[in-house]
Design a protein around this nucleic acid. Structure first.
Lengths: 248, 248
DNA sequence: TTCGTATTTGCGGTTTTTTGCCTAATTTAA
DNA sequence: TTAAATTAGGCAAAAAACCGCAAATACGAA
């Protein structure tokens, strides 16, 4: 097998799997580790891949990830717009915290006339910047990790509300396990919010889909609408659509 | 799994959930805690994340809501220091909002162990940054001008507290008219706070002395301690000393 | 083809990197 | 305060990388 052939093969493998191991390649092609290492070194010099200890990584994979970080804001903006379109004047709305919710708060129509209830300090501040909506902060002990108020009093307050909408930021959403979180207190709050609302909307970037955390907040059938940055017909959303969720 | 892959994965998780735990990561990727810890350490050195005990935090999330405003910073710093010296562990403390209070929150001894109740969203966030104190947000409608929660429910909550201290930022303080404010709702809150506390401390820069606003919050005899940036013996403070206030 | 040269490859020995485990010290939570 | 969890630092084993060299191979020219 020629050197050129080998290198083509390596790049091909890299395209397929996004990563290759020295040991694997040498075994597959029946050459020594040193040869593979030298190949990888050359290809790295030609900027065709990223050499790492033990093998190499696809370049596109790495850069795509970096770009994604920048795009995340763009994604959240899309989500915020879609969500804002569902809110109508006169509504009473319960919301959690999180970056998606904050972005949503910034995207609301300045003429909107609604009442927002929230346990998130940051969200309350963001909503309060809006000229006409009314903001009610739900009080209780402040959880330092999440900057949310949590506790029995907060839950009780939420229970005394009859809201039209509940808008929750997704931490993890899974077709089987449903909506889940890692913080027990926060889970209690979110559960109460869902119960106190006629409709529940979950918003978040698609990467949070198909992941689980320790504690379940709600089954999928308790959630009415799912909003991500993806096109509603995207194949990744199909399993959720089949479970009865409305996708935007 | 390659080291680089692991680190990418960690950053990805961080991007998704804003926080990661060593234990979770090591479990997810099937490597030892030590390895994860070393990864986090490296990434922290590269400024990609914030390492904390037990895991790491997303950089963007944590730095997004940090500090910004500085007016009479020097003066407010002096006030904050004097005020912080009066707080002891175990105390229950009611506070209003305002820049002086925020500065005070930053000046608290990291080992202090007290419970703070507040109606101010910004103050609650600032207090929550402290490692050991407990923060209770008093909920109600958010007043947009002041970023305070106000209303009957908040007043009622305050009435159910027996606090050791009440620390109020001064808006206007006058030897004759006492402590005054312009916002009816805020006044109700502050009145309730004073009533619910054994001692009341007013803090603010001396410029706010000898001025009046529309609505009275409290007479001078309801206030125990006055803290400004001035030396306690400053002549400007004499009239207040004569009225029976303790000056710091 | 055959030869000479340049390149490529494999190998042994050494160095570096990575990882897991151990213990002691620190931090956290109750 | 105590008990549990987390971390730091040292150590050792395994894997990978590096280095130099000699053998093998490719390639062009005679």
């Amino acid at each position: 097998m020629l050197k050129k052939e080998r290198q083509e093969f390596i790049l091909h493998q890299l395209n397929l799997h996004n990563k290759v191991l020295c040991a694997d390649l040498s075994h597959m092609m029946g050459v020594s580790d040193d040869t593979i290492r030298r190949d990888l070194q050359e290809l790295a010099q030609e900027d065709k891949l990223i050499k790492v200890h033990g093998g190499a990584l696809s370049k596109s994979f790495h850069t795509a990830f970096d770009r994604k970080m920048v795009y995340n804001l763009e994604d959240k903006h899309i989500i915020a717009q879609k969500t804002a379109a569902l809110v109508q004047s006169g509504m009473y709305i319960l919301t959690s915290g999180g970056t998606s919710i904050l972005e949503f708060a910034k995207s609301l129509d300045p003429n909107l006339n609604a009442t927002f209830f929230t346990c998130s300090l940051n969200a309350a501040i963001e909503f309060a910047h809006h000229p006409s909506i009314e903001v009610v902060m739900i009080g209780d002990k402040v959880s330092k990790d999440s900057m949310l108020t949590t506790g029995a009093s907060a839950v009780q307050t939420i229970e005394s509300i009859q809201a039209d909408l509940c808008i929750l930021g997704i931490n993890s959403l899974d077709t089987q396990f449903g909506l889940s979180e890692n913080d027990w207190e926060v889970v209690q709050i979110k559960k109460a919010m869902i119960k106190a609302s006629k409709k529940t909307i979950c918003i978040g970037i698609s990467e949070k889909l198909n992941s689980q955390q320790k504690i379940k907040v709600a089954n999928l059938d308790e959630i009415d609408i799912l909003i991500t940055e993806l096109n509603p017909n995207d194949s990744k959303l199909l399993p959720f659509k089949h479970k009865g969720l409305t996708i935007y």
